[in-house]
Design a protein around this nucleic acid. Structure first.
Length: 891
RNA sequence: GGGCGGAUAGCUCAGUGGGAGAGCACCUGCCUUACAAGCAGGGGGUCGUAGGUUCGAAACCUAUUCCGCCCACCA
């Protein structure tokens, strides 16, 4: 305090809140000011976040909007709190997604990726990226994201690509990456391998066919059940369980595979469930993950019957060339014709689909690269359990453990052209495999080398994001200053894809987990709780929303609806509701500015003595709110923090304080009081704007500038500190009393059906403790009570002084209020009203009495609770008595 | 099959041991010169069900029903 300021005033502030003209202006200003820039050499404490890089093909959806709003709130708050903040932005090259987008464009031009050739295709994708890849970045800016854009990264940047190769090579050297021919998930449309996570399992109605396999010795047949008869020509054995009394004796015999006529053995294996069907299971190692393992256990042949496009291959006999589901139909019909189909029933089961194109996944035998995850996983789980990483809300740690403890090797090679090419070279002459950071020229044997055609899973490079973006493997200032990052903010849907793998790579290569906290937020759904999707037509486009309501309205809504552990159900009407709040803040500010305009708000003009109860009260509340707000943001309680500010600004600052300060601002209380009110308003709005700035940066910046606070832009202002106030609790309780009194008076007026503006000459108040402080509160603030209630005079009744006749009345434990209404009094109605209050009290005292007569309660409950109950009972009893008296006096 | 979350006012949700709250919606009255995107007042809930712990349970424990989600090698 003590400074002199001249608010810029109302100029340019529209009569109601209109975000459009504000947002672009201020965003440009922030960039110009360089406020988002992190400084790796700063002496301030660091706070860092790496953005979950959106797909370069992406367009901002509500999930991004939520994720980035929350990150922005944290970053902006921390900046004001004096931290050196790095919010690292960037995009992900999104292998399959991006390749698909460009291939689609090519197809429209009558080309294909094959017709272009690899090099030209990749060039084409880069061109696409240059042209359209910045779209989502611009959309993030619209939202107000305060990333350090000078540092924008892309997972296929040179530096990041070098990090990818380095990690691959080192993992290979540590034998944590290997290559082998396994049964992997294959998308016959994308023509690539997928990791287990990239397969979406959907419950599908299929058919379960019973097929007869004749014994080779001609003596009878064996019935086997299958959902995939098209793989029958890949059968290499029939398995029965070794302890299956029904079938055990069959082991060692041979059966003839229908259609193709091959003879295969009946073997014993635990996989066969004696309870399922006939207990006999066909083994097709090249087309089923379980059968694959059985095949390995028993040294069985692997017969592939399909090609990479899901068509029957040369092993498919007469079905060769046929698409897999066509082949299924044809084979079933042929089996039926040959009398080998013993049955067919509906069968619900789970079928894997490609997470990118929704094609049914085919288990496919092929040569791929894998990361050996087990050795990495154990260490990571320990790190989390030791508390090096904290999941918020905690329950997600359980989800993480569950997956990590059952983790399987990660297939990282993809048969795509867009991505980080695997740094492995093969010598066709000697068979040597060279894995190296840089391209080797020739093989040691002198033979020519050929690089692996495949690229790495996109998630392989994003797993390195927290340190690759900071210049690793070089030892940079950024890494020293900002790694490990402070918090990762993301949705639960990518805990396995991304979070777990970042932890893996961070622990392995940086020897420290990549973040201290992981804040997992909810999914944004529509108002009915359904996932938003284009096909359902229930998508809310954040960009349209921003256009219509402003980024701040969207941000405030998302923050307000973010409660830990619950999904967000969003609808347009909710955004409207919160926009009303912005309008309220806007108008309250206009009101404040009207009254500050051209006034010197020199706090020196008003000594402590010029402050009245409501001034002290709002200062005390502001201080409490400041403390609470800081605490809530630190704990990631976004919804609670938004609500706190909403309630304070609307329910306390506007509804009470501004109303109460009107007379002083008009000058009715003299120049000292006017100056005092101005300086309080000025100070309170300063803190309110600061506290709200992380959530609604644009609006607060605009208002900050209008108020003319002297600290430059608000983003550079210092986070407020709670102020110590003498006798804050006395102030709060006095104000509580005043508010309760005002509400009671308004209630009685409403009861008497008086128009709100009609002046009432008098109400009488009888305090229980006549000589107490509250009497002084009433007399000192008589003008305010009158302002709030339009009751000209509040007459204090002395001890033993009788109330006037023909009154409406309200009785509390501490006081009685009488409203003399004369002839207007509807005696019967009033008696009825008081009677029902009496009834309510009766019930309450009943309960309290019962409690107090319970010896156990007296013995075991804490003394202060017992005391509280006693006091409550006493108060209620006297309240009852007084209501009874009032009723009696009416009758 | 394993795991997680939810069930509180018409709707959306707060509320982690001391007799249930908010916003929206609804009803009544007000254009009170910051704001009708507003102001004031009001009605509305045996906190999913059943047990248990406790002096005391919406909250803690057990079981159960329903809804949602995740994981898993369901022929």
């Amino acid at each position: 305090m003590g400074e002199t300021v001249r608010p810029k005033g109302l100029e340019g502030l529209s009569k109601s809140y209109d975000p459009a003209p504000i947002e672009d202006k201020w965003y440009a200003r922030w960039i110009e000011d360089g406020i988002f820039k992190a400084d790796a050499k700063s002496g301030k404490p660091p706070f860092s976040i790496v953005i979950p890089p959106p797909n370069v093909t992406g367009s901002l959806h509500l999930g991004h909007a939520l994720d980035n709003t929350l990150q922005d709130i944290l970053c902006r708050a921390k900046r004001m709190q004096g931290y050196n903040v790095l919010w690292m932005p960037g995009t992900d090259h999104a292998g399959i997604a991006t390749q698909n987008v460009v291939e689609r464009a090519l197809r429209e031009e009558g080309h294909s990726r094959e017709s272009l050739g690899r090099e030209a295709f990749v060039k084409r994708v880069w061109e696409w990226k240059e042209e359209y890849g910045g779209r989502i970045i611009n959309q993030l800016k619209k939202l107000g994201a305060s990333c350090d854009w000078n540092r924008e990264r892309f997972t296929m940047d040179g530096g990041l690509s070098r990090a990818v190769r380095k990690v691959f090579v080192e993992l290979y050297r540590k034998d944590l990456i290997y290559r082998g021919k396994y049964l992997i998930n294959w998308c016959p449309r994308c023509l690539t391998a997928l990791s287990d996570l990239e397969v979406e399992h959907k419950e599908t109605e299929g058919r379960l066919y019973s097929v007869k396999y004749a014994f080779a010795d001609g003596k009878g047949s064996l019935t086997v059940m299958t959902t995939r008869p098209e793989t029958i020509m890949g059968d290499v054995a029939i398995a029965v369980h070794p302890r299956d009394e029904r079938n055990r004796h069959l082991a060692g015999r041979e059966v003839i595979v229908p259609i193709c006529g091959r003879v295969i053995p009946v073997i014993e294996d635990n996989l066969a469930d004696p309870e399922f069907g006939t207990g006999a299971l066909k083994i097709t190692p090249a087309h089923d993950p379980n059968d694959f393992l059985v095949g390995l256990r028993h040294g069985l042949e692997q017969i592939q019957v399909m090609d990479d496009r899901g068509r029957m291959n040369e092993n498919g006999g007469k079905y060769a060339g046929m698409e897999r589901f066509e082949a299924r139909k044809a084979i079933v019909s042929d089996l039926a014709e040959q009398g080998l189909l013993a049955g067919e029933e509906r069968h619900g089961h789970s079928v894997g689909h490609c997470y990118r194109c929704d094609t049914v996944i085919e288990p496919y035998l092929s040569e791929q690269w894998f990361v050996r995850t087990r050795p990495l996983a154990d260490e990571d789980v320990r790190a989390v359990k030791e508390g090096q990483i904290r999941f918020v809300p905690e329950q997600w740690a359980g989800t993480y453990y569950q997956w990590m403890e059952n983790i399987r090797d990660w297939c990282v090679s993809r048969q795509l052209w867009w991505g980080h090419r695997i740094p492995a070279w093969y010598c066709d002459d000697c068979g040597e495999v060279i894995v190296s950071l840089d391209e080797p020229e020739t093989c040691a044997c002198g033979g020519k080398l050929r690089q692996d055609e495949d690229v790495l899973d996109t998630w392989f490079s994003s797993a390195l994001w927290p340190f690759s973006t900071m210049g690793w493997p070089d030892e940079t200032d950024e890494l020293a200053a900002f790694y490990p990052t402070s918090v990762l903010v993301t949705g639960f849907d990518i805990i396995f894809f991304w979070v777990a793998r970042m932890i893996m790579m961070g622990c392995e290569f940086m020897e420290k987990p990549p973040f201290r906290d992981v804040y997992i937020h909810a999914l944004v759904r529509d108002e009915k709780g359904q996932k938003m999707s284009k096909s359902k037509g229930n998508v809310i486009d954040p960009l349209v929303t921003i256009e219509k309501y402003g980024a701040d309205a969207l941000r405030f809504t998302l923050a307000a609806l973010t409660v830990q552990g619950r999904d967000i159900f969003l609808s347009e009407s909710r955004i409207e509701t919160y926009r009303f709040f912005l309008n309220k803040l806007w108008n309250a500010s206009r009101f404040a500015l009207m009254n500050l305009e051209c006034a010197a708000c020199d706090a020196g003009n008003c000594g402590e003595g010029a402050l009245r109860l409501h001034d002290r009260w709002i200062i005390a509340r502001m201080s409490e709110v400041t403390e609470k707000m800081t605490e809530l943001l630190d704990g990631y309680y976004f919804g609670e923090s938004a609500k706190l500010m909403y309630d304070f600004v609307w329910g306390e600052l506007c509804d009470w304080y501004l109303e109460l300060s009107k007379p002083a601002l008009r000058g009715d209380e003299g120049p000292m009081r006017k100056a005092a009110s101005q300086s309080v308003i000025y100070a309170v709005f300063r803190d309110v704007l600061k506290l709200l700035h992380p959530i609604i940066p644009f609006t607060t910046e605009e208002l900050w500038s209008a108020f003319g606070y002297g600290e430059g832009i608000i983003g550079r202002a210092e986070w407020p500190e709670p102020a110590a106030l003498e006798d804050a609790s006395g102030v709060l309780s006095d104000m509580d009393f005043l508010q309760a009194l005002a509400r009671a008076m308004r209630n009685l007026r409403a009861e008497a059906k008086l128009p709100p503006q009609k002046q009432v000459p008098v109400m009488c108040l009888r305090l229980k403790d006549v000589s107490g402080d509250k009497a002084a509160v009433v007399s000192e603030n008589a003008d305010l009570v009158s302002l709030l209630t339009k009751v000209e005079k509040t007459e204090l009744l002395g001890a033993g002084e009788g109330k006037p006749p023909q009154c409406l009345s309200t009785v509390t434990g501490e006081w009685e209020l009488f409203f003399p209404v004369g002839e207007l009094l509807d005696v019967e109605k009033e008696i009825k009203r008081l009677g029902s209050e009496l009834e309510k009290l009766e019930k309450e005292t009943e309960r309290t009495r019962a409690k107090l007569s319970n010896a156990n309660f007296i013995d075991r409950a804490p003394a202060e609770v017992v005391e509280k109950e006693r006091a409550a009972l006493e108060a209620a009893e006297s309240q009852k008595k007084r209501i009874e008296e009032n009723i009696a006096s009416l009758a």
